[in-house]
């Protein structure tokens, strides 16, 4: 599947006026945006701004209070369990710390979705697993257990599992968090390669500036549950909005200690492993 062919179609994902609550606390207060096919769409924002929550809603892991999330023409908030599962087979999710099953080898982790869903013959699965692992640079790790891998390798293995079924869309939560700069940069290259070779659309949550500068096509910035910026990297860097400028200039928040405690500033699990 080539990038050009898919660009003709409309947006692959459309989020309209998404509102979510955590208990009584509002997390997202009406967020709207579109993601085009083949794009690397980056969601940024400070800790606790609702990035991870947004990602969980877009992948159908949580359901919103109101609003639409349209995947390829289907509003996933209206689907029942079975229909949602069918949509989820067409998206890959790579988790912050890999999300690998600890009781299986890396190879079996990648093979799992292929065995369960894939319309691939059993005879091709071992080669396909090795192919995907080579794509993410983990060819030698096939027979290792997840707890024998480093943090960066776990993320790569998680990515290999996410692309196992050749999904058109991959969600990636914090690809570079907790990695050294070399590893992080390698992972960015990998994302760019996969987009170019396989035409995958990436939706990435991150707050690593270097990584944003390197890979992003468009950026959505969230602050306290609202979208305060949507546009390209160049637009973001020349933006006048104080929050956006602060983010790109890496200036600390004077009230950082209080931010997590104000209503709406719900603390999420972020960053470090």
């Amino acid at each position: 599947m080539s990038v050009d062919a898919k660009n003709l179609a409309g947006p692959i994902i459309r989020v309209e006026n998404l509102v979510t609550h955590y208990g009584d606390t509002p997390i997202l207060k009406g967020v709207s945006f579109c993601v085009d096919p083949g794009e690397i769409f980056v969601i940024i924002g400070g800790s606790g701004c609702g990035k991870t929550t947004l990602l969980k809603h877009m992948t159908g892991l949580l359901s919103p209070t109101s609003g639409k999330i349209v995947h390829d023409g289907t509003d996933i908030t209206l689907l029942d369990e079975d229909e949602l599962t069918r949509v989820q087979r067409n998206i890959g999710i790579a988790f912050q710390s890999g999300g690998l099953f600890n009781s299986m080898t890396v190879g079996d982790n990648v093979a799992l979705p292929l065995r369960e869903y894939g319309k691939v013959g059993e005879d091709l699965i071992p080669s396909l697993v090795r192919f995907k692992l080579n794509l993410v640079g983990l060819g030698a790790a096939e027979h290792l257990m997840p707890d024998e891998l480093s943090g960066g390798m776990k993320k790569r293995a998680g990515l290999a599992r996410a692309i196992a079924l050749d999904p058109p869309v991959i969600y990636f939560d914090e690809p570079s968090a907790g990695l050294d700069p070399i590893m992080a940069s390698g992972l960015d290259d990998l994302i760019l390669n996969l987009r170019r070779l396989l035409g995958i659309t990436f939706i990435i949550v991150t707050h690593e500036l270097d990584s944003i500068r390197k890979i992003s096509d468009r950026i959505l910035m969230l602050d306290q549950g609202s979208a305060i910026f949507l546009g390209t990297l160049a637009e973001a860097e020349s933006s006048d909005a104080p929050r956006v400028r602060q983010f790109f200039e890496r200036r600390a928040d004077e009230f950082i200690a209080q931010r997590g405690m104000v209503p709406g500033g719900h603390e999420e699990e972020e960053g470090a492993e």
Partner: peptide, 13 residues
């Protein structure tokens, strides 16, 4: 001109 992952997997086989 083009190849995909499953085609590549056959090369590995």
């Amino acid at each position: 001109r083009t190849m995909d992952a499953r085609g590549g997997a056959w090369l590995l086989t």
